[in-house]
Design a protein around this nucleic acid. Structure first.
Lengths: 145, 145
DNA sequence: CTCCAATGATTGCATTTTGCAAGTGATTGC
DNA sequence: GCAATCACTTGCAAAATGCAATCATTGGAG
C-alpha cells in the first residue's frame, strides 16, 4: 500500500467516469471497429484508416479489457491469435457511439460513404440501436454471460 | 503554406471526427459544466471537482471556440470577464453527454448525488433531453442564431 | 525436419501533451 | 490609491504519443 488515500478517480461524476474509461482519441475507434467492421484481431485493428500504432493499440486493448469493456481469449484454431470480444458493458457503448455519429454527420465533414451505416440506423428509428445491440450480443456473448 | 498536402483529419469517419473535437479527458467536462451547472466564466470552470489546470482550460476553451462548439464574448458588465456560451452545435452535444451519463450510472461507481440529474432525465422519458436542449437555447442563443 | 511468413506484442527514442506552480497585465471595488 | 480579481501565459518536469525496429512463438510449405 504505497498510498492508501489515493483515490483512483478525479470525481464521482458520471461524465467524468465515462471519460476516464474511453475519453481519448483511440478507445472508441477500437470499439467502433468491433461493432461495425466485425474486427476481432490485433492485426485487423491496425489496418484502420486512422493508423493506430502497435504500442498504443496494445495499451488501449489492455486498458479496455481491464475496464471490462472487452475480453481477450486465445483463438482455439490459432494459438497465436488473440480474439477480442465485446462484453455487455462494451455493447452498451453503442448508444454513445451512435449519438457521436449523429452529431458528426450533422456538423463535421464526414465521408458520405462512411456515414451510410449511421444514416441507415437513423432511418430505422428508435429500436434500430437496440436491434444492432442484440445482433452484437449474438456474436460476442456466446452463452457465457 | 508549410505543407499544402497536410490533411487535417485522420479519416472521414463520423466517430473519428467527433473524437477529434472532444475526444479527450477535459472538453466534455467543460461542456457538462455549462449545461448542468450554468458555468460561463473561466474561474467557474476552474472550480470543478476534477481540478483542471489553467493552461489546459485555456487551451480547451480556445479549441472548442475554434471548433464552433462555444463562443467567447466580453462580459458587458465586467470588462475583465469573458463569458462563454454554447452554440447550437454545442447544445446538440447533450444527447452524447446524456448517453455517457446513462452508461456510467449503469457500470461505474458514480456518486449518487451527482447521478441524480441524469436519473431525473431518464425518468422524464424521451423528450426530456429535447426539453433540456430547448432550455439551453433560451439561455445561450439570445436571438443571434 | 527446416525454413519462413504471420501472430500479438515489446523496446528504444524523439516529439508532443499534460500537469503544476508561479507570474502577467488589465481592471474593479473599496 | 491599492489590494483583490480577472483571464490568461510562461517555465519546466513528467507522462503520453508516434514511429521504426525487434521479439518470441507458431503454423504451414516444402
Amino acid at each position: 500500500m504505497e498510498n492508501p488515500d489515493a483515490s483512483p478517480h478525479r470525481s464521482g461524476c458520471p461524465i467524468n467516469l465515462g471519460l476516464e474509461v474511453f475519453g481519448d482519441r483511440w478507445s472508441l475507434l477500437i470499439v467502433r471497429d468491433m461493432m461495425f467492421a466485425g474486427k476481432r484481431h490485433f492485426r485487423e485493428f491496425l489496418a484502420s484508416d486512422e493508423a493506430i500504432s502497435t504500442n498504443i493499440l496494445a495499451d488501449r486493448l489492455a486498458k479496455l479489457v481491464e475496464a471490462g469493456v472487452l475480453t481477450r481469449a486465445d483463438d482455439p484454431a490459432h494459438k497465436l491469435k488473440a480474439i477480442y470480444s465485446l462484453t455487455e458493458m462494451g455493447i452498451e457503448l453503442l448508444p454513445i457511439v451512435a449519438e457521436i455519429s449523429r452529431w458528426s454527420r450533422k456538423y463535421q465533414p464526414v465521408d458520405p460513404e462512411l456515414a451510410a451505416t449511421g444514416e441507415a440506423r437513423d432511418r430505422g428509428g428508435p429500436g434500430a440501436v437496440a436491434a444492432q445491440m442484440e445482433a452484437l450480443r449474438r456474436v460476442h456473448l456466446n452463452g457465457e454471460n
